[in-house]
């Protein structure tokens, strides 16, 4: 009968090996995650720098030529990467959190670039006599479920109308330029709110409501289709 108490011991080596392995896994993951984040940050920064240079170049070109040449349409001049940058920043927000100081810094820079793009687009439209369809959107990440829904609508809208220029601004960002933009566009302080072609819309608006409010969108879609058709015929020829 083996029921006696033999002196049992704990082999601490197993606990230590497991601890070292767990720390190694955790450490590697932290390192990989940090490297990936740094890489993303630098990618976003380089896109922003490119946009800044593009904008500056456009501004300079614009000043030099003044009203002399209205040969180019808005889209080829203004930075096309802005929309792409927006997607990236939204993703970074999801990864690092909305309170991350680096993300906030990038968002401020992004907001300023958007405002400059918006102004340039407007000036170009005035001088060259075309009316760009722009949508300025103010939102908040803080307890605003309508803003989340509006975000989905605008993403879908951008996919449907690639020529539509959507400028999104986080109204909670501590950036005086956003406040000034709200003032000059007469946007209310509430979120979500949108300024489309000078008209103000507050609260959640569905895709259908926006399409009805902005007849220019239908025209835009027709133009887009015509361009696509032209390209298609070229290919088939």
């Amino acid at each position: 009968m083996q029921t006696t108490n033999k002196e049992r011991t704990i082999q601490w080596a197993r606990y230590i090996v497991a601890l070292v392995l767990t720390i190694a896994i955790f450490g590697s993951v932290l390192y990989i995650s940090q490297v990936a984040t740094d890489k993303r940050m630098s990618e976003v920064k380089s896109i922003q720098d490119k946009i800044a240079i593009d904008l500056l170049s456009s501004e300079t070109q614009f000043s030099l030529l003044s009203a002399a040449g209205c040969t180019q349409d808005g889209d080829s001049i203004l930075a096309p990467e802005i929309g792409q940058l927006g997607d990236r920043l939204t993703f970074m927000e999801g990864q690092l959190g909305i309170d991350d100081p680096d993300v906030i810094g990038l968002k401020k820079y992004y907001s300023l670039l958007q405002i400059k793009d918006y102004i340039l687009m407007k000036e170009l439209g005035d001088k060259c006599n075309f009316k760009p369809v722009t949508l300025v959107y103010f939102y908040s990440n803080d307890n605003c479920s309508d803003c989340t829904k509006q975000g989905y609508v605008l993403t879908a809208l951008r996919e449907k109308y690639p020529l539509l220029r959507v400028y999104s601004f986080d109204a909670d960002l501590d950036l005086s330029a956003i406040k000034t933009l709200q003032t000059v566009t007469s946007a209310p302080g509430t979120v979500p709110s949108m300024v489309i072609g000078g008209k103000i819309y507050t609260g959640f608006k569905s895709i259908e409501e926006i399409e009805i409010a902005v007849p220019a969108l239908a025209k835009m879609l027709a133009e887009q289709k015509a361009v696509e058709k032209k390209a298609q015929t070229k290919i088939t020829q």
Partner: peptide, 23 residues
């Protein structure tokens, strides 16, 4: 609000989730 059942999937490597919690 959009009627899209499957959202647009981002294929760029930028969008791979490398959050510590997720890994």
């Amino acid at each position: 609000v959009t009627g899209q059942i499957i959202p647009k999937i981002q294929t760029d490597v930028f969008f791979i989730n490398t959050n510590v919690f997720s890994i």
